[in-house]
Amino acid sequence: MWDDSAIEVRDALDRLPEGDAELIRLIYWDGLRSHEVAKVLGINPSTVRSRLSRAKEQLRGSLENRRAIVSSTQVYEPRPSDVSLPAHRTDQRRDPSAES
Rank of each mutant, 00 (worst) to 15 (best):
R51I: 12
I69V: 14
I43T: 02
E77V: 07
H88A: 06
T73V: 15
R79Q: 08
E64Y: 07
R49G: 02
H88Y: 05
R67W: 03
V48L: 06
T47H: 12
P86D: 09
D91C: 13
R89V: 12
P78A: 11
P86G: 03
R51M: 10
P80W: 07
R51A: 07
R67I: 09
R60H: 12
L52S: 05
R79G: 12
S72N: 07
E64D: 12
E77M: 09
S81V: 06
E57W: 04
L85Q: 02
S53G: 12
S71R: 07
R51W: 09
L63P: 10
P86V: 08
V75C: 00
R79V: 00
P86I: 08
G61W: 00
L52Q: 11
R89A: 14
S50Q: 10
I43A: 03
S71F: 04
L85H: 01
Y76H: 14
R67M: 15
P86R: 14
T73Q: 13
V83Q: 04
N44L: 11
S53F: 05
L85R: 15
R66T: 05
T90V: 11
L85C: 01
Y76P: 01
E57A: 15
S72R: 15
S84M: 03
A68L: 14
V83A: 09
P45T: 09
P45W: 13
V83W: 08
R54K: 13
I43R: 00
R54N: 10
E64H: 12
D82V: 02
D82P: 00
R60I: 11
S81Q: 12
S50E: 13
K56Q: 14
I43P: 01
E77N: 10
S50R: 15
R93Q: 03
S72K: 09
S46A: 04
Y76N: 11
S71Y: 03
D82S: 13
R93I: 06
